[in-house]
Computed example of a mutant assay.
Amino acid sequence: MFEFITRRSFKFNLLVAIGLMMVLGILFFALLGVITHHNETLKVPDVRRKNVNEAIMLLEKAGFEADVRDSIYLDSLKALTVWEQQPEAGADVKVGRTIYLTINKVVPPMVAMPDLEGLTYRSAEMTLRSRRLNVGDTIYRPDFATNTVLQQLLGGKTIQPGKMIPEGSNITLVLSSGTGNVENPVPDLVGLTFLEARETLNASNLNLGTVLIDAGVTDTANAFVTKQIPALRNSLGEPNKVRAGESMDLWLGPVRPVRDTIFPDTSHE
């Protein structure tokens, strides 16, 4: 065959080669529609909430390819379950198109707990979502800074910023409801231990402000309140008033004070 080609002129061989290329080109473009499934579309089946292996099998059976492109963690969803698909269910796409799946992880990854205290509710919610954490319950407590986060809880206990917790955890937010509209008499804390004073403040929906501790105190919890601001009475001997959510400053000492020398009762003078 090689001798047959060499006996022909260059011009003849060139024309033959051009003719073969044209035939191959015509065949290629004629079969292009078949190769690319031109104008052949199918509806994408809904494989969400299905196990990933079952989802892939259904997609391949329907004429699609499947590929797991991402994963998340949701405690409300079974492990290895399809959470999201692209293109979405019901879309008309070409036969053989790859459907990308996002599945739920088997083991939740650990993420660092952010510091939410002092943030507004909206900012705290966005911060949690950026870490793939969820807002759980919201508890309101009187305080000056309305609708800001006062405390962050996990499982009913305070969770410190930076602590590693499972992704998808529900974080309870204690939010400020602002100060109350009703004024109540200032509670009498002088003579109580610091632990008793804090319990009294909590029961009165008041916050603990600045705490000044005497040098002689060795056990803060059992130290005694020797002074408070606001005081029980004003300079005219009239009872001072506070609203829920306001703060009280305390002075602590190692010895229980003598009450009548600290706050003499002037109400009958």
Rank of each mutant, 00 (worst) to 15 (best):
L252G: 01
Q228R: 11
K94P: 03
Q85E: 10
A244F: 01
S123C: 01
M1G: 06
E3K: 09
H38I: 12
A55L: 00
F224D: 07
A91D: 13
L175M: 13
G245A: 07
F263L: 12
T138M: 05
P114A: 08
V211N: 02
G156E: 11
I5N: 04
L74K: 03
N234G: 14
G162A: 02
K157I: 02
V242E: 11
P161G: 00
F2I: 13
L24E: 07
F12E: 03
R7T: 07
L31Q: 14
L201M: 08
L58E: 08
S71V: 11
A124P: 10
S204K: 07
L133T: 10
H38V: 11
G90T: 03
L252D: 03
S71P: 05
N234R: 09
V95W: 09
H37K: 15
V23K: 05
L128Q: 12
M1P: 00
G156Q: 01
K157G: 01
A112S: 15
L32N: 04
P109E: 10
L101Y: 05
Q151C: 07
Q86W: 09
E60D: 14
H38C: 07
L119Q: 13
T127D: 10
K227F: 10
A89P: 06
A145H: 00
T210Y: 00
I26P: 02
G180I: 07
G191Q: 05
L154Q: 02
D137Y: 06
T218G: 12
P185Q: 06
E238N: 09
E117N: 14
G33K: 08
T158E: 00
E246W: 09
V44F: 04
P114H: 08
G253N: 05
Y121N: 11
T127H: 05
V93S: 03
M126F: 04
N53V: 14
N205L: 15
E54P: 01
I72V: 15
R122I: 12
N181Q: 07
E269M: 06
A145M: 10
L201I: 14
V135P: 09
L206W: 04
L80S: 15
A145P: 04
Y121L: 15
V149Q: 10
P239S: 08
L192D: 09
L212A: 09
T158M: 00
D249V: 03
E117Q: 13
G96Y: 10
M22T: 10
T172M: 11
